[in-house]
């Protein structure tokens, strides 16, 4: 049994520039999948290749065992929600949403029924005769969403759908997207550069860098067990200490830190990955340093401590235990919690 959507050995170059490099990926039915990565990592190119708006140089895309690449964009059972929303400015909200159904040549009452139903789902039925220019950013985003899902695609592609919204509206829309995906029962593939967004919304994430998939995992897995230094650095706040493994410890800038069992050979270069919330402050510890500054985030405070490494160590601390800036802090952690990654 093969996957719902399978991408095999996909490659795409723009002249000398490599956009996608021999990329393979499998996505399951009804999954909320996120393509995450820094700008220029190829995630948008991949999304546009799925939509049929971008040609590829090599590779295969199969949807339910059907070749997708041989179909032009207007024949694919896939719809894209554009980053700019791309609402037709001369058409009303209703006409925008009905556009795709009219192209299918469906009977008039079916078009009316389906369009109204989708508009009700995104709570825009009252605005159906408005022009897109009369809508707020969040409303435009919902029209774009309605226009794409009314076609009942097998896959809905979303290109940075929330990037144009302010923070408060964004978190509301994240919930809304999740609810819609659940109700509609459609596979969602979302492109974003915002790791928090991907973590909070997706079932699984593919983290991309320079045209390649670095790791595919659930948000929790990716946070807990990053496969490479790049993943550890990209996902969440992290301390990455570069050093060398000895027989029983980890040497960083002349200091010896305890480690749990590792498969990495003694003497090899490695990166110790330590989450800020895994570190505790106490009267004694593995390493000590002076508190340089603290950033208050409401529920928690992030401390920056200078332990003589090439970077300040970040430690999460609850508000009423924040030490005075300048005091010496002793840091300790459970060595089994820390991840050791090879630094090749």
């Amino acid at each position: 049994m093969s996957a719902f959507l399978s991408i095999e050995n996909l490659s795409k170059n723009y002249g000398q520039q490599i956009a996608i490099k021999n990329l393979s990926l499998e996505i399951a039915e009804n999954e909320f999948f996120a393509l995450l990565g820094p700008s220029g990592c190829g995630k948008t190119t991949l999304l546009r290749a799925l939509a049929g708006l971008e040609s590829v140089d090599a590779g295969e895309i199969r949807l339910q065992n059907q070749d997708l690449l041989s179909l032009p964009a207007n024949k694919r059972p896939v719809n894209l929600m554009f980053q700019s929303y791309a609402l037709f400015p001369h058409l009303t909200v209703y006409e925008n949403v009905a556009y795709g159904l009219r192209r299918e040549g469906l009977p008039k009452d079916e078009i009316a029924e389906r369009t109204s139903k989708v508009l009700r789902t995104v709570s825009l039925l009252d605005q159906k005769n408005r022009s897109p220019s009369q809508l707020s950013g969040g409303q435009k985003q919902r029209v774009a969403l309605a226009r794409a899902i009314v076609k009942r695609p097998k896959i809905l592609l979303l290109d940075e759908p929330l990037s144009a919204l302010d923070k408060k509206v964004r978190s509301e829309m994240q919930l809304e997207l999740k609810r819609l995906q659940h109700e509609a029962g459609i596979t969602f593939i979302l492109v974003t550069h915002d790791q928090e967004e991907a973590m909070s919304i997706a079932d699984r994430i593919a983290l991309m860098d320079q045209g390649e998939v670095i790791q595919v995992a659930t948000p929790v897995e990716m946070y807990r067990a990053p496969k490479t230094k790049f993943v550890a650095d990209f996902i969440g706040e992290n301390n990455l200490l570069t050093g060398q493994i000895t027989t029983s410890s980890f040497m960083v800038a002349g200091k010896s830190l305890p480690i749990a069992n590792t498969q990495l050979p003694s003497g090899s270069n490695a990166v110790l990955v330590l989450r800020p919330e895994q570190i505790t402050l106490g009267v004694s510890g593995f390493v000590a340093g002076k508190l340089i500054s603290s950033n208050f985030y409401g529920g928690s405070t992030l401390l920056f401590i200078d332990c003589g490494f090439d970077q300040l160590i970040k430690v999460t601390c609850v508000l009423d235990q924040v030490p005075v800036v300048g005091t010496t802090c002793h840091l300790s952690w459970n060595p089994a919690d820390a991840t050791l990654l090879s630094d090749g």
Partner: peptide, 19 residues
């Protein structure tokens, strides 16, 4: 001035290039 993705959106929604 107009968004060049409008035509792509039309294609994505099932329209032909001429349409």
């Amino acid at each position: 001035q107009i968004d060049s993705s409008l035509e792509q959106a039309a294609a994505d929604l099932g329209d032909t290039a001429v349409g």
